[in-house]
Design a protein around this nucleic acid. Sequence first.
DNA 1: TAAAGTTTAGACAGTTCGTCAGAATTTGAC
DNA 2: GTCAAATTCTGACGAACTGTCTAAACTTTA
Lengths: 251, 251
Amino acid sequence: MQQTSRKQRERDNRHSLFLELAAKLIEDEGFPGLSMDRVAELAEYSKGTIYQHFSCREDLLVQLCNQSLSKLLELMKIAAGFDGHHRDCIVATVYAHTLWTRQSACNIDMLQHTAVASVTSKATENSLAQHKHIEQELMATLVELVQGAINNNELPKNKQLNPMDVVFGLWSTCYGGQLIINSDIELSELGVKNTHAVLLRTACLIMDGMQWQPLHSEKRLKKLLARFETELFANELNQLGIKTLFESQTK
Amino acid sequence: MQQTSRKQRERDNRHSLFLELAAKLIEDEGFPGLSMDRVAELAEYSKGTIYQHFSCREDLLVQLCNQSLSKLLELMKIAAGFDGHHRDCIVATVYAHTLWTRQSACNIDMLQHTAVASVTSKATENSLAQHKHIEQELMATLVELVQGAINNNELPKNKQLNPMDVVFGLWSTCYGGQLIINSDIELSELGVKNTHAVLLRTACLIMDGMQWQPLHSEKRLKKLLARFETELFANELNQLGIKTLFESQTK
DNA sequence: TAAAGTTTAGACAGTTCGTCAGAATTTGAC
DNA sequence: GTCAAATTCTGACGAACTGTCTAAACTTTA
């Protein structure tokens, strides 16, 4: 069994190599730059070998996306563990989402490209199942926070919206917002100055609308963000070479 | 000039025919089903002729998207003209957005596919300019409502968010939400029963969070929706063969 | 009616995807 | 150390698609 294990290890390494090179290709030349031929060429393997790891281009895409999503899940779990009210944790997850999109523009792109029917219809059962699983874990992390807030009487029960509905609403805002930010629409030209901050504030408005306690004053929000940056994501910010995600507009 | 005008007319008709067939192709077989060859075949023209109307496949896509967006703009303008408070008009625009995605699943798909860099980088200046123009009109329609509410003292001024920021937040929620609804994620399985209604309520929460008057009781919201369905979009609902967009869950 | 001008057709070159038969390598028994 | 069996890798190939370009077909006009 020693032998098979070595083989398996080699196979896994190759698999990682292919994914890594594919990600690099996308980073460098965008999605159309990712072709199976190019990956094979860069990896110095032939096409046939690539196709032993990925049933088709779409499957490769979904696997790449799963990699990205896994990173998001990690950040989200860190955020959910923030030492504060449940509401603060939710704000932290929104922060984490922003951080994730900042780590690489490809992250949110990947999600967008993978969510398309022409991709999901061709990918492997296996890859899709994994994708679904990560998504469910993400949702579960958030639902837990909402449920916790309800149990603690911080979030009044709402006849119209159950916990998962709340998560769906917040998720929509973050996802849609990031997509718009990432699109060609020039928001700054339209008058939206600090896009990420606006999204975060919008998420807060949703919570305010539900009377989710404690309501945030501007001062309190600023303090929270500062704490995220030191207590939760110091490493990540450091890697990005920045001190803060939301450039303060007041001098 | 009579002659050129007739020629121009013929050319325009052909252009419409191509767009129509392309839309049909997408409707029937999805985005990968749309190939220039197929359009040519269906239209009983040759490829060369198609390429006189569209510089490339991407340009055709953007033009299709522009068609969809124009329809949305029409609905939005109807919504913005609702006889009620500014806040009610905003709710009407959210309703309009939902209606639009219901008219054809392709509508939101089109936006998603067109927002991708590989498409926008290849399309014609012209088509892209038109796209931008429609988007700006959409935004302008919404900003006007927000500004109107501020002027009427219905929406308290907010130091952190200017009118365009508010529009961006609402837009994000609708757009992101519709994309998620339209994706393969099975929300009902996750516990979100009436997705469109949840989105609408989330938009209301954002407005509640800003103290945008008049706040909506559940009763008032129901009444509003009913009015939209008779006063604004009776025709559109009729065409869809439905009485209401939001199936009431109470018997 | 015929030359000039315009429009259309579809063959062609260039990509990319995904397959598959055969070449190359590795394995393990002797 | 040798060799047959098993495994893995290779790259030529067919199919589909994009976008171009020349020659043919058609229209206009004098």
